[in-house]
Write a protein that binds this DNA or RNA. Structure first.
Lengths: 277, 277
DNA sequence: TTTATTTACGAGAACGTTTTCGTATTTTTC
DNA sequence: GAAAAATACGAAAACGTTCTCGTAAATAAA
């Protein structure tokens, strides 16, 4: 240990702790000359401010939390990439938490973040999230909260979303224009707004092109991967199997790919797949 | 703000701060009865210990840093998944830092972690890392350091690695057994031990099967993606192009895939690709 | 009964910063 | 030359914990 603190510097330089602190903060109260020697000594001893002391005093953590359902998803890794990148430039630190689509875990995590550990939270909620009281709690503690991708619609927080309806519409339209006659929609949740809005786009596209909306072709998936896969298997084995698939999230598309491969269905010859990611 | 501190609880309960703190830590110095009422009040007011105050006092952060080159890589996301999972169970927090294969960034990051912000660091070094003085610095500050996957060999720290040599050997052997006659090796760095050891395996496999080691078939790639891709293009356009490729890291395999696709080469008919991931 | 020992709590000192305030010295203003 | 203002620094109080002591009261041992 024996780390270098302001006191170390102060003693070495025969200055007071406050002077050293102010010098390092480039305060106008300190002469240029003193600032210089303090800065030099700080460099020499490789002084680094203690984030806990500083955080405690300033009530700022310079840290944000990113809470996401999974990390093995191109969208989320992309998001982390961007977030970390900006954070790094701005001198912020990024804590990462995975909920694995588990609301309880999600609530536990947000619970941990109420005590000043972070200055703000970016979250993409789990598919299961129905109860949103843990978000209300954060709001009541005035912790900045930003939803991205998967949002809670009835909480007034900044939300970063894609145009789900339009994209769902276009994806479906694209399949139709490429000759698909039976298009399935893979839904990840019936509570998640992104899933629902994407599905509305799907439905509207079908309607526009005069295609019948068949409930059988909307496949309600959940986080139980094996269940989802056997569902796909069943659908794709049927004589009247879909020739086009719109996946509401990447993971479902991948599973669909794998099942097609398993069943010897060629993509895109036999089945065309389009997905959000 | 107006967060609930030990003082809040103490005042409400007409107890001292120390008593409340000890009660919450289940100290033997406190009667069961007092513990109970303290615990109840803490629950009621949803008290959460302030990590900064606690960290400052205990000199423990309950936080570890994960420093990796990139996040859009299946191996690293898998690693984060596992690390976060264990951390969550153990009550630890995970900070994430991306170096983007930049040694300077890497050094800056490790510099930020010397002041007690984290209790330990897990790192997979960037391909560029030649100078390892920033790791020595961490060692000298006695900050626990664990290398994983991409390690600095001459630093005495725990290292988590795969059997690079053997895997490189087996990968190459697999291609040979499947009829490849000209096997290329995509190297990510000539300083990185994982890359070199994997290549040694590749060389040894060639030797075992009496195949000539051709320097032309060892492709030294770097982090400049476009450069790498045009390199691939050149190699794969040759009349005597490789019919098998061993990629030392996932990203190179993906680029190779894309170039094959671009050139109309069928995988695995025209070219077989095997990769570490 | 007197002396030890245990039990249950409180006072107060850290941890390392930041920041307000006070104050000697110097400089400016009239 | 006196008063006012600026300059450059230090003392000390937070921030919220944890933890070492100190110490009354209650119990046990002598």
């Amino acid at each position: 240990m024996s780390s270098i603190t302001l006191a170390t510097l102060a003693k070495e330089l025969k200055l007071s702790i406050s002077t050293v602190s102010k010098a390092l903060h480039d305060s106008h109260e300190i002469s240029e000359q003193t600032k210089l020697i303090v800065l030099l000594k700080a460099k020499e001893l490789n002084y680094q401010v203690n984030p806990f002391a500083s955080g405690l005093r300033k009530q700022k953590s310079k840290t944000i939390a990113v809470v996401i359902p999974e990390i093995d998803d191109n969208f989320f890794t992309l998001a982390i990439n961007g977030i970390e990148s900006v954070a790094q430039v701005k001198g912020y630190h990024v804590l990462i938490y995975l909920t694995h689509e588990d609301v309880k875990k999600e609530a536990t995590i947000t619970g941990l973040l109420q005590n000043g550990r972070v200055d703000g939270i970016m979250i993409s909620i789990s598919t299961e999230t129905g109860d949103s009281s843990h978000f209300e709690e954060l709001k009541s503690k005035e912790i900045p909260l930003v939803f991205f991708d998967r949002v809670v619609e009835n909480i007034s927080s900044p939300k970063i979303i894609t145009n789900d309806f339009e994209s769902g519409f276009k994806a479906t339209e694209h399949l139709i224009e490429n000759g698909c006659k039976r298009i399935a929609f893979l839904s990840i949740s019936n509570t998640l707004s992104i899933s629902n809005n994407r599905m509305k786009g799907y439905e509207d596209a079908l309607k526009k092109y005069g295609m019948k909306y068949e409930p059988d072709l909307v496949i309600a998936c959940d986080n139980h991967e094996e269940k989802t896969r056997s569902l796909f298997r069943k659908i794709l084995k049927k004589k009247k199997r879909p020739d086009g698939i719109v996946a509401s999230v990447e993971k479902l598309a991948i599973n669909a790919y794998e099942i097609c491969n398993e069943l010897g269905l060629k993509i895109p010859d036999d089945v065309k797949i389009i997905s959000f990611s």
